[in-house]
């Protein structure tokens, strides 16, 4: 099944931001930028949003044994308005894709996306011939910063992804940093 048949919610190449409140800075004040990046990296509040199996591993990562709260990424916010990080944990299908896009748009910038597990990366085991429902990766819908392979990935992998994301935020290498 070729890609041109699929009509997806269109992702603009530079659609990491909503229109409002995003004026490119006239003056860049580097120390302040650094401080903000440092704060952002250390305070990643994920959106409570699980789709399938990987969501359970996401919950496990936030639970006692793995405890992402240690890195400041344990405050799960239910409202996208207060979340910084969307962890797409599970298979994205055609019915869900527009909703993911909408949730992403509802989050305030700067915002980051982790695609957790094979399904969110490329459709995983469900991306087969004659599959009519599954989107081949959430990066077709929202810009993804970190991909975490695994089916499902272990909680350690998610923690690693969060740490990696922190490094990228600090060095300005995320979709949200490139204004």
């Amino acid at each position: 099944m070729s890609d041109e048949h699929r009509s997806l919610p269109v992702m603009q190449p530079d659609s990491g931001h909503t229109d409002e409140g995003q004026i490119p800075p006239i003056v860049r004040f580097l120390p302040l930028q650094k401080a903000l990046d440092l704060a952002r990296a250390n305070s990643l509040w994920p959106l409570t949003f699980g789709i399938a199996c990987c969501a359970i591993e996401m919950m496990a990562a936030s639970a006692s044994r793995y405890d992402t709260d240690r890195f400041g990424a344990g405050v799960f916010r239910n409202s996208p308005r207060q979340a910084d990080l969307m962890i797409v944990a599970g298979t994205v299908n055609m019915k869900m894709a527009p909703i993911i896009r909408r949730l992403y748009d509802q989050m305030p910038a700067p915002k980051y996306v982790i695609a957790l597990g094979s399904c969110a990366i490329c459709g995983g085991p469900f991306d087969q011939d004659e599959n009519y429902a599954v989107v081949q990766g959430v990066d077709k819908v929202v810009p993804v910063d970190i991909f975490v392979p695994g089916c499902p990935p272990r909680p350690e992998a998610l923690i690693n992804a969060i740490l990696e994301l922190q490094e990228r935020i600090k060095s300005g290498q995320t979709h949200s940093s490139r204004v």
């Binding site: 789709i51 299908n93 087969q128 011939d129 004659e130 429902a133």
Partner: peptide
């Protein structure tokens, strides 16, 4: 329903 529909039964036929 159907926000997590993955077409497993169709896949199984293949």
């Amino acid at each position: 329903l159907g926000y997590s529909h993955r077409g497993t039964e169709k896949l199984a036929e293949k």
